[in-house]
Amino acid sequence: MKHTIAVLVENEFGVLSRVVGLFSGRGFNIDSLTVAPTNDEALSRITLVTRGDEQIIEQITKQLNKLIDVIKVIDFEAENAIEREMVLVKVAAEDQSRAEVLRIADIFRAKVIDVTPKSYTLEATGTPAKVGAMIELLRPLGLKELVSTGPVVIGRGAKGWKG
């Protein structure tokens, strides 16, 4: 089972390596990871995607909570959270496929951020599912390069999430 876990941590040197070390030291997987300071500059928020059965996810969240620099851990449930990721993708675009790339970009509301006679570079944001669907449509046209932020996640509703 895939889980998207948000971790609020002290914005200090070495904290990320404590979090990552916990995963590598215990053989847990990280599928993706993103980290940046929050509205409170003393805090950073890590969003990571991991997988495992219920027992493993429980261990992961407990172990994260145990780290001194970790202030809060939330294992988001899909129905109560909004998840987005951004991808930049470079696609081959010559002659007959040039129009097709633009059509796909339009359907997924992706932006063209760079263009050459042989390629388009697109920027797309959305749920991992939507972004994934776009990538699959572009793949047969010649995917040259793909870079993704991995998902970030925020809870639904009016309540903000602070330390």
């Binding site: 027992q55 172990q63 145990k66």
Partner: peptide, 8 residues
């Protein structure tokens, strides 16, 4: 005292 010990 350590929650990580429980159900590990």
């Amino acid at each position: 005292v350590d929650p990580t010990s429980i159900k590990k």
